[in-house]
Computed example of a mutant assay.
Amino acid sequence: MTITQLQYVLAVAEHKNFTLAAEKCFVTQPTLSMQIQKIEDELSILIFDRSKKPIQLTEIGQKIVNQAKNIVNEANRIKDIVEQQKGFIGGEFRLGIIPTIMPTLLPMFLNNFIKKYPKIKLIIEELNTDEIITRLKNGHLDAAIAATPLMEEKIKEVVLYFEPFVAYIPESHPTFHKSEIDVDDLNLDEILLLQDGHCFRDGILNLCKSSDLQNDTNHFRIESGSFETLIKLADEGLGTTLLPYLHTLDLPEKAKLKLRHFKEPKPAREVSLIFPKTELKIHIIDALRATIAGVIKGAIVFQNVEIISPIPKK
């Protein structure tokens, strides 16, 4: 059997369809099917149960797929070893970033990174945390930037910085006169939230120690995918909201007057560079971490913080 054949097996196992797997592997469907058939003939077993729709792995097929992942990863590691020995930092690198980090952090480091490492073809995708975890496990991302800790057994986390939560409070709100606020000043029923699927939303719910969003006295309930929308609604006196610290830096001066920081220890999210524990392309990951660390240290210097988990409480 060959590495290429194992890659075909992994593609079918992921997509559960021979035609789609062939498209992803850039080969014809008969070619892919023939190569998988060769492995099955060589081993005298069936990897896939073709009678089911979608195609399913057999019991022995699942074990083979698990081992195939290890073999393909180790084969890719050989390329890493050679590139590191040559001092070459280049090639394609796929990076995922969650939506509440992408708009603020990416402009801070991207220009520096591509100038310093022009041989790297950086492919960046905005993805939510669940999508990032899935793609890292399936080998479709090399690394990602997300709020942590995530408690994923096969994923390594390297902390980049701690980013405090900052309250945005309209002038009509009772706590507007306070220079700093406590978590106890928050009322979950009046906080304007990001829509479901954003880990920053889950952090706010964890901070408030509640997941009950229902309130019969409210005339409306809104969840948005945009901080800008939440800020405009707060300006209309329709509630308060919480923002990540970096997002507050570019607000107009008039809007900054409505920002209120929490008393120490400030509730904050931990932002990390995450990647599979196989550490493939670790030389590029290290280069990315160093670049981000170089630009972020002047922007965020908070130390006395309390990390709020991005994992939703059950």
Rank of each mutant, 00 (worst) to 15 (best):
L160S: 06
A293K: 15
L205D: 03
P310T: 03
Q56I: 14
Q7M: 15
L141V: 07
F48P: 15
V271I: 07
F165H: 02
E40F: 15
K258W: 01
K254Y: 09
E14G: 13
I282W: 00
M102N: 03
I311P: 14
I124T: 13
L20N: 08
D189F: 12
L205C: 07
N187M: 11
R94V: 08
A22G: 14
P276I: 02
D212V: 10
D185C: 05
V82T: 04
L20S: 11
D130C: 12
G96I: 05
S272E: 06
L249P: 03
F18G: 04
F275L: 13
E264Y: 10
P310A: 09
T240E: 03
G87P: 07
D196C: 12
I81V: 12
M108I: 13
I169G: 00
E279N: 14
P312H: 07
R221G: 05
I307A: 11
P310M: 05
A290P: 15
P174I: 14
V305T: 07
V72N: 01
V65L: 09
A299D: 14
K69V: 08
T134N: 12
Y117I: 13
N206R: 09
I81G: 12
Q303C: 01
T31S: 05
D202R: 13
R50N: 15
L110Y: 11
S51Y: 14
I114G: 06
I133Q: 01
I222M: 01
P164I: 03
T241M: 05
T229N: 09
E264P: 07
H173T: 12
A290G: 11
D250W: 02
E190Y: 01
G90H: 11
L194T: 03
V166Y: 09
L110W: 15
K266M: 10
F48S: 12
Q214C: 10
A13E: 05
K314G: 10
H15L: 12
L122N: 12
T134G: 09
L193Q: 02
N73Q: 03
P252G: 05
D250H: 04
V82I: 11
Q35N: 05
I222E: 00
P252T: 10
M102C: 01
P164S: 10
P312A: 08
S33G: 14
I36R: 06
K53M: 08
V65E: 03
